[in-house]
Amino acid sequence: MKFILYSSDATLSDVDLQQLLAAAIEKNARLNVTGFLMSHSSGFIQYIEGEASTLDDLYEEICADKRHCHINTLLEANIEQRMYQDWSMGHVYIDDDQMIEQLKCTDGLTLFEILKARTLFLYPNDFSTQQA
């Protein structure tokens, strides 16, 4: 099993976020992929986890998706167990552009730790209600 953490630019006004989330939840449940998506005014930061070959195929599809540009793999590693086993696709919107810019300037491991702390400890109840 492994995880991938990546960022991408996207114009959210061109993306129906609710439709994207509904499709991701359905697809991830079918593929046994879990994780979360942080959206912000200029794109996404996403963490996905699952079986390595499934995740590699999914990430290849994400990279080919025309709604994304400037995709940047921030961190990728093998894992023993899932961190988000109950979330086909948790979601939170971050409207703090300054925070997003700071996150983009940090290294992948530091960003991963920040996002992990934010999603697991500050928003545990939000994810259960925002999974569509």
Rank of each mutant, 00 (worst) to 15 (best):
L75K: 08
A64R: 12
A24Y: 06
T110D: 00
H68D: 14
A23K: 15
Y123S: 05
H91I: 14
R30N: 11
I62F: 01
Q98N: 09
R82M: 05
D56R: 09
E101M: 08
N32V: 04
G43R: 00
Q19V: 10
K66I: 03
L103C: 10
Y123F: 14
H91F: 14
K27M: 05
L17I: 15
E80I: 06
D95M: 04
T129K: 12
E51M: 03
L103T: 01
Y59S: 07
L111M: 13
R67E: 08
A23T: 14
I94Y: 07
L55T: 02
Q131R: 09
Q98T: 11
L109H: 13
L103I: 11
Y59V: 13
T119I: 14
K2Y: 06
Y84H: 02
I48A: 12
Q19H: 11
C63S: 10
S41C: 03
Y123G: 00
Y123M: 15
L12I: 10
R82T: 03
F127M: 15
Y84V: 06
F112V: 12
I71T: 15
S13G: 04
N72M: 09
Q81S: 10
M38L: 15
I25H: 12
T106F: 04
K2T: 03
S13H: 08
E61L: 03
H70E: 13
A22Q: 13
Y6L: 08
A77D: 12
M83H: 04
Q98R: 10
K2S: 14
D126G: 11
D97I: 06
G90F: 05
D16A: 07
M99G: 00
L115V: 06
Q130R: 14
D14C: 07
L21Y: 12
I4P: 08
S41G: 04
L37G: 03
D86F: 05
M99R: 15
T54I: 14
L5N: 01
A24V: 06
E76D: 06
A24P: 04
N28P: 04
S42D: 08
A24S: 15
H68Q: 14
S7V: 01
G108F: 01
G43M: 09
L74D: 02
T34F: 02
Y123K: 07
Y84I: 02
V15N: 04
H40C: 05
I100W: 03
K104A: 13
A22D: 02
L21N: 14
Q19C: 10
C63Q: 11
E101C: 08
H91P: 02
Q46N: 07
S42Y: 05
F127P: 00
Q102G: 05
L74R: 13
N72I: 10
H91T: 12
D97F: 00
S7T: 15
L20Y: 06
Q130S: 10
A117C: 07
W87Q: 06
S41H: 07
D65Q: 08
D95T: 13
N28V: 04
E51Y: 00
Y84C: 09
K104M: 09
N28A: 06
L5E: 00
K116C: 05
S128Y: 04
Q130C: 05
N32A: 11
R118S: 08
A22H: 12
M99P: 00
L31G: 02
I79A: 02
E60S: 12
S7E: 11
Q102D: 13
L120M: 15
A10N: 07
L115H: 01
L31W: 07
K66Q: 07
S39G: 14
M38W: 06
F44W: 04
W87D: 04
S42V: 04
I79R: 15
Q130N: 13
H40D: 02
V92E: 10
D9M: 07
H70L: 10
